[in-house]
Design a protein around this nucleic acid. Structure first.
Lengths: 158, 158
DNA sequence: TATTGTTATACTCTATAACTATA
DNA sequence: TATAGTTATAGAGTATAACAATA
């Protein structure tokens, strides 16, 4: 019949709401970029490469908090689709410098559009001033918690 | 040397921050309840049983959004530790009504303490008034997005 | 025949560790 | 020998679907 009764007092804490809404946001975002034939990890890597072109796979793995072995398959997938390129470093031929192709740049623009639409949908309950307030509070929490900007931990990585 | 450059403009949207902070909050919570020898799914089930004693496993599976087959193993784990009980319904012997034991109730109190500490740590960057503001904004988002109170989607389930 | 709970199977994802090529 | 990248293996976790008991 009815739902589970709510606990007495102030209700769920902010931490639970953050985890609950965060998981929901991640799922909805995955659905949206799925229409671009991308997974969240692929999207995260593409953005990470674009953010600082020329980094090695080791450097990327460290920043993203993922084992280098996992990055290989991810880079393979984006490489096969012509979204990123591996370029050998002549000075040290062991390194693969990663770069985004033109097709990758175009896709990143579409990803940005998807992100804005997703953002708008997630904040549908709030007006502009409230969204700015939320954004500011979340930014301070992320900073205080030591989270790396643009890197999604745990999922791993969006 | 330095980190990846930040994108121009307003920075990351609220949706990304919500997903990022939410995943972080879930991980930190998992660490804390791990000291009670509990996983997030076990904790979520225990709280769901306590919220409405006597429900069948089917009913729990529906509410939690998990396959019934998965609930079996989860209930087994809590049952073996004496935290919940399966009670046969004499009227319909197919049903297993789930109840929390006294030991389960005691553990739930400790879980609540852990939750409060976790909540406080996650909001360390904010003062009391700001926490109340955040809590209100998140509550409205969760409501507008149709999230079930107390149920963590996606992880599955915290 | 339909439903509850259970078990069995298969699949996906991930990390660990071995391997190669360059240095 | 040490490091970047790759490949191979194994493990955890999950869902799908078959099964037994009760209705």
């Amino acid at each position: 019949m009815d739902d589970a009764p709510q606990p007495p007092g102030p209700g769920p804490g902010s931490a639970f709401l953050l985890a609950q809404i965060g998981a929901h946001a991640a799922m909805r975002f995955a659905e949206r970029i799925g229409e671009l034939d991308l997974t969240p990890p692929q999207t995260g890597l593409l953005r990470a490469v674009a953010a600082a072109p020329g980094r090695s796979q080791q450097a990327l793995a460290t920043v993203l908090g993922t084992p280098p072995s996992r990055l290989v398959a991810l880079v393979d997938q984006l490489d096969e689709r012509g979204l990123v390129q591996r370029r050998r470093n002549p000075a040290d031929r062991r390194l693969h410098a990663l770069h985004v192709t033109e097709a990758g740049e175009k896709l990143l623009q579409r990803i940005a559009e998807v992100g804005r639409a997703h953002d708008d949908a997630m904040c549908a309950a709030l007006d502009d001033a409230e969204r700015a307030t939320l954004r500011a509070l979340l930014g301070r929490i992320a900073d205080e918690q030591g989270l790396t900007p643009g890197v999604h931990p745990g999922y791993r990585h969006a």
